[in-house]
Amino acid sequence: MARKRRPLLLPSLLFLVISGAFLFAAWRMNGLPSWQLLAARKTSASWSILEEIRSLNELETAAYEMKVVFPYDFIGDKEVNWIYLKLQYDREPGLFLAKSDPAWHPGGRLPSDWEYAGIYTLCRQVGIDPGRPDYRFVVMSASVRAGVDLDLWLEEFTSGEPTAEVGGISVTVDEDGKRTLEIAAPPVIVTSFLIEDRDASADGFPDVPLTPEGWRLLVEKLRPRLREMALDGGLLISAENESRSFLTEIFTAAGYDNVIFTN
């Protein structure tokens, strides 16, 4: 009996495989439509408990606001050899950490290839690998604020009747009847550090795989650097000028002609 010929079988199968691959590629690139019955179902819940109420007296007079992109804003304009760092890290992570310390190297200075080993370690700890071409990044909006702690300042004057000797306050009246207040200005400090609670993916940035633990680690490690950037940007100088200006306005509005800060 002659064998039945099926000339379209092979092309049909090939067509089916190619179509399947096309559909898979389209799904991976564009995602499933939102009405898809088998789409992801998300549930979330949360609750809070009030733990503490504190009274404070912080006059915040300046804020340094910044939007940074991790890790790229933390390497400046330099070309970093991420692949070299990746090879070293993958070979032996424990040794990599030791080599990230300047004390490991002769003269106590990091070689140029190791300059950003600390940033690379942080990247790997939070699940980002700049040594691979996946270009993941995290966008953070931070605000560092500075001003004066009025309670600390006022405590300086509570040890007795405010005079030139106690707390450095003195009031003088000249021959024209103009009153001048001389007073020690309050010291300026960094009062708060805020990372804006914001879903960067809602702004069109990639939704980076990052666990809450990774997010905590990232903020904790980058905090000193962000603070430094704010201080370099003149945060404390601006806060001091604005604090003095504000206090001057208060006392002049209340009747003084001049306010002089003694420090």
Binding site: R54, S55, L59, T61, M66, G233, F246
Partner: peptide, 14 residues
Amino acid sequence: QRLRELRQLKTVSQ
């Protein structure tokens, strides 16, 4: 990145 002047007196924190 910008520096902004404020005049906010924070008096309570929860």
